[in-house]
């Protein structure tokens, strides 16, 4: 009997070690490019292009970080990017939750029919609306402002509306009914009952939107004209030109762009995954 327990225990340990080995192998594979990114950013120029490739710089060279923040106006682009990200996150969270509330917590006849349209809009490729939207924004004199990048998030982005609606559906309707009997307005129920319960789902929307805006390349490329309005994603592209690629500087700048988000994710991933799980995207 005790022998059997021992064997089982042994098996468990073996499989645990095996699990870790597999995870470490793949995690290393996934982290390799980030590792290479950081390592290259710390190499002197002479070691960047060598064969066999140097995994670890022979000496740590910080010069590229100086290049990174001087070659492009790094902090200006950073503040532009943060501004766009923050306003977009705010817009998405507020508008998507309001709209999702209207599609889930109030029963009205045409609701579900209109919701089908919401889902259908997700199918329209950006390219279809890109050109006319450019024309519209041009007429509004919004070209070369952050408005074309931010404003749409204030009108209930379909993907997030969908996500939040699925979540709101899971909150028992009795809660709302009780509040209604007490004479609470719909907006009060939205703000005081539904939103607090939906916090993890709102975190998901916030994070998806944040990362989306942080990495958006096409939007800024089309709508931003003057260099002082650029975002980091566009700024990185400036390290490449027909004449010269500043590899070291590019890698250093990329590291600076990436690390804050990695850290952010590390500390928020639990909420994040819980949030997705609760929203029940399964539809």
């Amino acid at each position: 009997m005790s022998e059997g327990v021992k064997v089982m225990h042994h098996q468990k340990t073996t499989s645990r070690v095996l699990n870790h080995l597999v995870l470490i192998f793949f995690a290393a594979l996934f982290a390799l490019p980030l590792f290479w990114l950081i390592s290259t950013s710390l190499k002197p120029n002479t070691e960047i292009f060598v064969f066999p490739p140097k995994w670890i710089p022979s000496q740590v060279f910080w010069g590229h970080y100086k290049t990174a923040i001087q070659f492009i106006p790094f902090f200006r682009y950073l503040s532009n990017t943060i501004l766009i990200c923050a306003s977009s996150v705010l817009g998405s969270v507020i508008s998507a939750s309001l709209v999702a509330y209207g599609f889930s917590r109030i029963a009205w006849p045409e609701r579900d029919a209109i919701f089908v349209v919401v889902i259908a809009t997700m199918m329209i490729p950006f390219a279809v609306t890109m050109i006319p939207m450019f024309v519209v924004f041009n007429k509004l004199r919004w070209i070369n402002t952050f408005k074309p990048l931010v404003a749409p998030t204030y009108f209930g982005p379909a993907f997030y509306v969908f996500l939040l609606r699925q979540f709101f559906m899971t909150i028992p309707l009795e809660l709302s009914d009780a509040a209604r009997i007490d004479g609470a307005s719909e907006f009060f129920i939205y703000r005081a009952i539904v939103l607090p319960l939906a916090r993890p789902a709102l975190a998901v929307v916030a994070l998806f939107q944040f990362i989306g805006s942080w990495n958006d390349f096409l939007g800024p490329l089309i709508y931003l004209r003057s260099t002082e309005k650029y975002t980091l994603a566009l700024g990185l592209q400036q390290f490449r030109s027909a004449l010269l690629t500043e590899w070291g500087g590019l890698m250093a700048a990329s590291t600076l762009v990436t690390l804050p988000i990695v850290i952010l994710f590390f500390f928020t991933q639990r909420t994040f995954i819980q949030g997705i799980s609760l929203t029940g995207i399964k539809g």
């Binding site: 070209i143 004209r225 030109s241």
Partner: peptide, 17 residues
């Protein structure tokens, strides 16, 4: 003024604006 990216697009839309 340095305009490093997508110079022509920029010129075109500036013309439109």
């Amino acid at each position: 003024v340095v305009v490093p990216e997508n110079f022509r697009e920029r010129l075109m839309s500036s013309a439109a604006v």
